[in-house]
C-alpha cells in the first residue's frame, strides 16, 4: 500500500525544551500504526503537528509532512482547516472536556458535515444518527438531542469517534482514546475502533502508552522516547525480537501472551524521562540504559534490524545483557 501520510524529520521545540527531535514515520492506507511511549515523549505533539494544532508557543519544522502528494507544511491555516475533519480526523483523550458543554450532540456532529459537504441540518443529523448507531449507541435519535453532560464517558468517546467519521476520512488520529475510560469500557472502545478501521479502510494513527493495546490493535509500531523514534517496525516482529534497550524494557513491563512465563515478576525501568534542552546530543535513554557506554553521548544513527524494522542504538540487533558483572 502506498503511504497516505508520511512525516520526515519532524522537529518541534518549545521555548524551554525540544519536544520532538527528528521524527519520521509513514502511515499506509488501511493500516493501524501505533505510536507508543511514556508520557512526555512527544507522541501527542507529533500528532498535533500533523494537524497543525500545536500550541502557539511551539515551533514546528520538518523536511516534509505529506498527505498523499500534498505537503501539509506548505498549506495555509485556511487550507489546513478544509482538510481537518474531512480527510484527516482526530479524536482526543478526554471525552469529558473535548466536547462543548453548551451544544447538543446532534449540533456538534452535524456541523462537521455542514462545513465540509455543505449538507443541510436535516441531512447532517441523519448521517449523525446513522453513525451513532454504527458505533453502538442505542436510540441515536434521542442522543442527538442530549448534551454532553448527560452521557457517560464511554458514550462520549463513541460519539467523538462517530463525529470524526462524519466525512469518511482517510486518516484517523486517535490520541490515547481509551486512557480516560474504565477498563471494561476501554476494551469495548478498542474493539469498536479496530472494527471501524477495518470496515472503512481507515489509516489509523493510534497513540498509546500501553504495549498491550499495540499488540491488540496495530500492524506497525513506532516506539518513541525523549522526542525520538527509537524503534519502528511490524508489531509481530518487534514483540518477538525487540532490539532497542528501551523497547525491551517496555515489553518487560507488561505480560505478553506466549512470551511471559507464569510466576515471573514483571520488570520496570528505573528513573524518569530526561529533560531535553537545546543542544542535547546522543541517546536520550542512556541515563536509564543498562548497556550505556561512553559513545552513547554521541549522535546515534538508525540501523536495520530486518525488513521494515529500524532501531536507533549503537548495539547490534542481537545484543544480550551480560548477566555476570
Amino acid at each position: 500500500m502506498a503511504p497516505v501520510l508520511s512525516i520526515a524529520n519532524l522537529r518541534v521545540s518549545f521555548p524551554r525544551m525540544e519536544a520532538v527531535r527528528g521524527v519520521s514515520l509513514t502511515l499506509r492506507g488501511g493500516e493501524t500504526h501505533c505510536l507508543v511511549g511514556e508520557s512526555g515523549c512527544g507522541k501527542s505533539i507529533s500528532a498535533l503537528s500533523v494537524m497543525n494544532l500545536l500550541p502557539r508557543s511551539a515551533v514546528r519544522s520538518a523536511d516534509h509532512i505529506r498527505f498523499h502528494e500534498h505537503d501539509l507544511l506548505a498549506m495555509s491555516e485556511r487550507q489546513m482547516a478544509w482538510l481537518r475533519g474531512d480527510k484527516i480526523a482526530m479524536i482526543f483523550q478526554e471525552p469529558m472536556t473535548s466536547l462543548n458543554p453548551a451544544y447538543t450532540i446532534g449540533s456538534q456532529m452535524a456541523e462537521v458535515l455542514e462545513r465540509h459537504r455543505r449538507a443541510s441540518r436535516r441531512q447532517a443529523l441523519d448521517r449523525a444518527a446513522e453513525l451513532l448507531a454504527r458505533v453502538g449507541i442505542t436510540a441515536p435519535g434521542m442522543r442527538l438531542a442530549q448534551y454532553p453532560h448527560q452521557l457517560s464517558g464511554g458514550l462520549r468517546q463513541r460519539m467523538m469517534i462517530a463525529t470524526a467519521l462524519m466525512c469518511d476520512p482517510e486518516v484517523l488520529i486517535a490520541d490515547e482514546p481509551t486512557t480516560a475510560l474504565d477498563v471494561t469500557v476501554q476494551s469495548q472502545v478498542l474493539r469498536l475502533l479496530r472494527k471501524l478501521q477495518q470496515e472503512m479502510g481507515l489509516a489509523l494513527l493510534l497513540i498509546t502508552h500501553d504495549f498491550g493495546i499495540v499488540a491488540r490493535m496495530a500492524e506497525h509500531v513506532s516506539v518513541m522516547y525523549a522526542g525520538e523514534v527509537v524503534e519502528s517496525g511490524p508489531v509481530e516482529q518487534i514483540i518477538k525480537a525487540p532490539t532497542h534497550p528501551y523497547t525491551r524494557g517496555l515489553l518487560n513491563c507488561i505480560p505478553v501472551p506466549g512470551m511471559t512465563k507464569p510466576g515471573e515478576p514483571l520488570g520496570s525501568i528505573p528513573g524518569g524521562v530526561p529533560h531535553i534542552g537545546r543542544g542535547f546530543l546522543g541517546c536520550g535513554f542512556r541515563e536509564r540504559c543498562p548497556m550505556a557506554a561512553r559513545e552513547c553521548a554521541e549522535p546515534v544513527h538508525l540501523h536495520d534490524a530486518g525488513e521494515d524494522h529500524f532501531y536507533r542504538c549503537r548495539l547490534p540487533p542481537d545484543w544480550k545483557l551480560d548477566a555476570s558483572p
Partner: peptide
C-alpha cells in the same frame, strides 16, 4: 479542549470564536 476539538473538525475561525 473543546476548542481544539472544533479546530480538529476543520471549522472556520468565525464559527470557532463566535459559536464555540
Amino acid at each position: 479542549d473543546y476548542i481544539r476539538t472544533a479546530r480538529a473538525k476543520g471549522l472556520s475561525t468565525t464559527t470557532i470564536v463566535l459559536k464555540h
